[in-house]
Design a binder for these strands. Structure first.
Length: 111
DNA sequence: CTATTGACGACAT
DNA sequence: CATGTCGCCAATA
């Protein structure tokens, strides 16, 4: 289903909304799939949000590496979890050896 | 139309 | 703390 809306032409409304939200996350901040789902008005469409990011066609424009799990782990990434961790570290996010985000609650971006 | 698929989450064990 | 189960939902086959 393709709909012309906003800047993300050629994408479903759902995905457009998700990407638009992710785009707003500032450097050094992170958010969760859960918050994103809530941000687009569908608190339960968490997995769908994750899938949407996986299809992110604007990897350069959309910082989808700033979206993590709500349990404190980084979650997945189209280029590999390792890559995601590297990117986050470069932005100042501390990640423990076990893959857990340090000060998770403090760095989280709430909508 | 139905079935399957995940970058997930909450809860039980 | 580590696993497993079940629920969720858009997209896709």
């Amino acid at each position: 289903m393709k709909i012309h809306q906003g800047k993300f032409t050629d994408l479903s409304v759902f995905i457009s909304q998700v990407l638009a939200a992710v785009k707003k996350i500032s450097k050094g901040r992170i958010t969760t799939y859960k918050f994103l789902a809530r941000a687009v008005g569908q608190p339960k469409a968490i997995r769908a949000v994750a899938n949407a990011l996986g299809k992110n066609p604007y990897l350069i424009k959309i910082p989808c590496h700033r979206v993590v799990r709500s349990d404190g782990r980084v979650g997945g990434y189209c280029l590999g979890a390792n890559k995601k961790i590297c990117l986050l570290k470069k932005e100042g996010i501390k990640i423990e050896a076990g893959g857990r985000i340090k000060n998770f609650k403090k760095v989280i971006y709430k909508f």
